[in-house]
Design a protein around this nucleic acid. Structure first.
Lengths: 138, 138
DNA sequence: TTATGTGCAAAGGGTTTGCACTCCG
DNA sequence: CGGAGTGCAAACCCTTTGCACATAA
């Protein structure tokens, strides 16, 4: 169930979808659907909330954006910068994100799982802290 | 902001809280608040849903139970078996969980963070797959 | 033209909260 | 007795869905 032989169902190009892509491209930080909706509204290129959600969903399916779950249970999105598997190092102060591509973790996770007889292994890893700038102003 | 010099606010011992603790102690698997509520009801020791949530919250605060977020955004709880920092290896088939205590990840995360100038680092890591038993019956 | 995309408002599902009542200490 | 704990129902929040209308291809 992990991989369809995906042929993207050809998305139509609409004003809304473009606005959404742009908003995502403009932000280095993960944004929630609600935040994106608000930004578009403020920018004058208003898009229905439902449409924001629907497009976000399809963009995730097409691997155009990354999704994360905040501790509060909200989903946050950001344009993919690299399509390869990677993890995020996030600043709790300013939300700045660094992508970490290291392979070490994948190998390690695979090993641990194998030791316990697990197969078809996946994993999620997020690292967060305070970046140098944010740490300084305290 | 990370740590109060915590003196637990002394919880009162009630029938509900005891039932809750027992339900958690009886399950090796992570349960959602809703599932716990249903189990208690079925067991005859009914507890209000709000009370389940409130107690679960305080138990998490007191480090008596672990919390995880499912992909669907639901919070799931389980009695802590070890208070030390650890990660979970979860079977997607049956929910069985193995605690992984390895220190390797902590060291690795610390190193990656340091390379990017981050301090006060935390991380979350979950590994999931199919355990031997579940993989067999497919 | 016509199927896909959009907007709005209502519905959903999990979690939290207000308020009166209960019961531990 | 006094306040923490409880139950119920309403409120919340984010997200999804139904349906009529708009629009890309």
């Amino acid at each position: 169930m992990t991989s369809h032989a995906d042929g993207q169902p050809e998305r139509r190009s609409t004003r809304q979808r473009a606005a959404l892509s742009e908003a995502l491209a403009d932000s280095p930080v993960f944004l929630s659907a609600q935040e994106i909706h608000a930004r578009l509204r403020d920018a004058g290129t208003s898009v229905g909330l439902a449409t924001v959600y629907r497009n976000l969903q399809s963009m995730v399916a097409d691997h155009e954006v990354d999704v994360l779950r905040t501790d509060e249970g909200e989903s946050v999105y950001r344009a993919c910068t690299s399509s390869a598997h990677h993890h995020h190092l996030i600043c709790r102060g300013c939300g700045r994100t660094v992508e970490v591509a290291e392979r070490a973790i994948e190998v390690w996770a695979e090993k641990i799982a194998a030791e316990h007889g697990f197969v078809d292994v996946r994993h999620t890893l997020e690292i967060d802290g305070l970046c140098a700038a944010c740490a300084a102003q305290r």
